[in-house]
Design a protein around this nucleic acid. Sequence first.
DNA 1: TTGTACGCGTTATCAA
DNA 2: TTGATAACGCGTACAA
Lengths: 383, 383
Amino acid sequence: MKAFSSKHLLDRKESVQMAVTIHDVAREAGVGIGTVSRVVNNSPRVKPETRERVLAAIDKLQYRPDPIARSMISKRTNSLGIIVPFFTRPFSMEVLCGVEAVSARLGRELVLYNVETDAQRDRYFSELPMHRKVDGLLIVSLSPDDTVSRRFRDAELPVVLIDAYSPMFTSLVVNNVDGAYQAVKHLIEKGHRRIGFINGLIEGNFKFNQANDRLIGLHRAFGEAGLPFEPELALTSEWSRIGGKRAALQLLSQPKRPTALFAASDMQAVGVLGAAKELGIAVPDQLSVIGFDGIEVSELLELSTVQQPLQEMGEVGAAALVELIDNPAQTPELIRFDTRLIERHTTGPVPSSTHDPEAQALRESEAPPRLVVSGSTGPIPEE
Amino acid sequence: MKAFSSKHLLDRKESVQMAVTIHDVAREAGVGIGTVSRVVNNSPRVKPETRERVLAAIDKLQYRPDPIARSMISKRTNSLGIIVPFFTRPFSMEVLCGVEAVSARLGRELVLYNVETDAQRDRYFSELPMHRKVDGLLIVSLSPDDTVSRRFRDAELPVVLIDAYSPMFTSLVVNNVDGAYQAVKHLIEKGHRRIGFINGLIEGNFKFNQANDRLIGLHRAFGEAGLPFEPELALTSEWSRIGGKRAALQLLSQPKRPTALFAASDMQAVGVLGAAKELGIAVPDQLSVIGFDGIEVSELLELSTVQQPLQEMGEVGAAALVELIDNPAQTPELIRFDTRLIERHTTGPVPSSTHDPEAQALRESEAPPRLVVSGSTGPIPEE
DNA sequence: TTGTACGCGTTATCAA
DNA sequence: TTGATAACGCGTACAA
């Protein structure tokens, strides 16, 4: 009769799937819960035959330890959080893709915190440290200020920054000034002298600033070639396709329009392409266009660009974070990635028809530019 | 002196950020933990002045209830899971975007389960029901079989299917056969008679089958127009760009190549465009191309396509899931979405040069086709 | 080697 | 209206 009632109990568990706990397993195997726990956690201190019995019970009851109860004790959730602005943007996607890959490979769950407004960002920045729903945080393209950084550190929540910088956390950054330099130099080498620049908006007032770095890179290339920087040829717009298009429309409507355009992001460059098409300007015959990022669409559109190793940064970032979680006592590291110029079919030699003698003379009469480049932005130490 | 020691305690909590618990608040406010809990959970049964005291203590100590401990008792995690194949694909992204939007709006966290292999899918299908790390699950483009479905139901884990079907769960599907019908009809109306079809691979042996439905839609349009279905003009490839390209290369190398190509996905259609370019075939002058999905790149490339309301499906799916979580006793619903034909610049009239008299004669000599269309796939009830 | 008891931070119950 | 106390399911000292 004892067996009978026990069977009934079993039935209840199985049919209603009322979570089977460690106690059920212990009872089934005729051991204490401590032993079951030891078996589950692969403790060596358990006699092989006992282990067998417990394993059998676990298998029979289909027991799975409750992760929540586990977290309660261990203070570990086995999941990673990622704060990323506009995760849907190709740029973010590439990073996310790399992050997901190693996160999954390392057996971590990934929880996505998408931010599209300052309020959202601030909310995540202030709440996440306390929540403890993730073991660590990846932050993409957002540089937390000192107050926030301290909050993360005080909460002892491991943080790794991707495409962002803070001296307090391991940061993965790309050499933006060199990337922009390469892009502009490429244009100059193609013979372009009248080069337009569409920069991205500075989002938030953070110290780490991709947009400014790219401007600096441009200045560097200009300076090297003895080209003047003409402010009316530099515009700033949203980091999006329509932003790029709007800026391009304006730039290309000027009487002496540029023969080449450098956009601070591929999506903006795509917008430029759209604008050129609308204006009946042939690319690359009448206009060269180069972007920045190296996202997938740039390949589709045969767009010349400066590629960032976005996926790789995601992978390295996730790996670094897990490493940091397992071994919290590490000093922050600054990891730099290099960009790579990819010449495709939107950049070519200057159109001969644009050899405007007047402009030429004008340009030559000007004094060589004495640009004061203010060094890299913010606190990123030079190598 | 009492105050002194208490202050020290406070310091410890503040500096090491050793989580402040409900007990600390209770002590600080001079009440029991029950009262604090009531205040936190907005229970009306607490005297206003007491509430004030507790609130003050909470604010002073910066107390935040621990979500894990909360889940422990409430069995709720406040987060949604989403199982999605190749989340990086534009198709999945659009859905994900919609899901994320309402998930965030409804204050839920979103955990991402990306699946790229059958093993991964099976692992999620078998483990997720037990884990209880999410309150509910969105499953995209994957139809769980009966065994798996039962497992979810037995675990009482709310599930909503997007672009997939099971009678056991609320399912959001798009009318694939009508979408394909629209696409092919569009081509036929443009005068095309020799229409190639690049279908996607059937992934897994599930009952719900997008690929087959699209084939049926094609058959329907062909039948209506009295067009023969020529098997050598229908190929199947991966749902990707290279898949589409490979198939197109083969189709377009035939002696009497098709004048129009219908691809079962936009990415495949993009591959077709690439193939055409490589072969020096002008689109749409010498070849019309139409895709399926309506993802963002289709707009960029001016690709004619059949648009699915992907984002909307994500939004509706997430909302339905949350609704289901809050109110579990609901009968599964089948929600259908309609597609929309978007004519852009890759489809045009038949090239006159292709008016091949021989082929024409051949075609006319054939008996009008008697196609037996086997009805919609699987168990989706007709409306 | 194994079992017991305690604690993790909540919420819920119940008596006061 | 409030406070003490029992769960929740697990890991882990500690005792046996």
